[in-house]
Computed example of a mutant assay.
Amino acid sequence: MSIPLQSSPIMPRRLRAAALTLTAALLLAGCGGGSAPTTFDLTAPRDFGRVGASRATLVVQEPTTVQALDSDRVIVRDSSGALSFVGGAQWADRVPKLVQVRLIQTFENGGRVGSVARPGDRITPEAQLLTDIRSFNIDAASGTAVVEITAKLVGDRTGEVRRARLFTARVPAGAVDGPAAAQALDRALSQVLIEMVRWAR
């Protein structure tokens, strides 16, 4: 014996509510849940003048760094050492890639070497510049932008380390927001890049 199915007035309302909820969720997902982050760039110093001519050829490798800094996020370090991101802010590219490009441009702006390039640019270098980014963040405890980069000049043929040095800069950051943090880190990096170019003689 079959029992005829009866429609329930409750089910359509539940289905409509579920459909509305799903639609709202999809709309929010499509919008990214908020506004897009503001993108900031780093600059290559130009106003430090020529620092001596040279015919040397130099290849600048992409800097190495820890995983936390190998990203496009603007990072804040608190007093306990914990890392967090500045909301609504990002760099134009990964930090190591941006630092490599701006370092090459700083060498060019200073007229320091005869030819400076990145790996794969089809030049025969006399030396390579190897760098490692130790810090590239806002220090929340002191309210400063901290940039620390180690550099090694290595003979291309011998692999011998000719010289090595740690470069450090700290710049007041003010409020820890996207524009203030990005500008302070850019100024700190500019100090480091100028010192590094003058050092690599």
Score class of each variant (00 low, 15 high):
residue 157 R to W: 01
residue 99 V to C: 00
residue 73 R to Y: 13
residue 30 G to N: 09
residue 109 N to P: 02
residue 69 L to K: 05
residue 55 R to V: 15
residue 91 W to E: 06
residue 105 Q to C: 00
residue 176 V to M: 06
residue 57 T to F: 13
residue 43 T to V: 10
residue 115 S to C: 02
residue 126 E to W: 06
residue 11 M to T: 05
residue 135 S to M: 10
residue 144 T to I: 06
residue 4 P to W: 00
residue 98 L to N: 04
residue 157 R to F: 06
residue 59 V to P: 12
residue 169 A to P: 03
residue 1 M to Y: 00
residue 38 T to K: 10
residue 20 L to S: 05
residue 150 T to N: 09
residue 187 R to Y: 04
residue 76 V to T: 09
residue 72 D to H: 13
residue 159 G to R: 07
residue 133 I to P: 05
residue 191 Q to N: 15
residue 117 A to M: 02
residue 42 L to D: 07
residue 46 R to A: 14
residue 18 A to M: 10
residue 62 E to M: 15
residue 55 R to F: 13
residue 122 R to F: 11
residue 130 L to G: 00
residue 183 Q to C: 01
residue 183 Q to I: 01
residue 193 L to Q: 06
residue 190 S to N: 14
residue 25 A to E: 01
residue 136 F to D: 01
residue 66 V to W: 10
residue 85 F to T: 08
residue 15 L to I: 08
residue 4 P to I: 00
residue 36 A to P: 02
residue 101 V to I: 10
residue 40 F to H: 12
residue 24 A to H: 01
residue 169 A to Q: 07
residue 12 P to V: 02
residue 158 T to F: 02
residue 191 Q to E: 15
residue 16 R to D: 00
residue 41 D to T: 14
residue 66 V to H: 11
residue 64 T to W: 11
residue 2 S to D: 02
residue 36 A to L: 11
residue 40 F to T: 02
residue 135 S to W: 08
residue 189 L to N: 08
residue 159 G to Q: 05
residue 20 L to R: 03
residue 168 T to S: 07
residue 151 A to V: 03
residue 104 I to A: 00
residue 53 A to G: 15
residue 200 A to I: 04
residue 116 V to Y: 02
residue 1 M to S: 05
residue 154 V to I: 09
residue 38 T to N: 03
residue 61 Q to H: 12
residue 70 D to G: 01
residue 129 L to W: 09
residue 158 T to L: 05
residue 78 D to N: 14
residue 64 T to I: 12
residue 28 L to H: 00
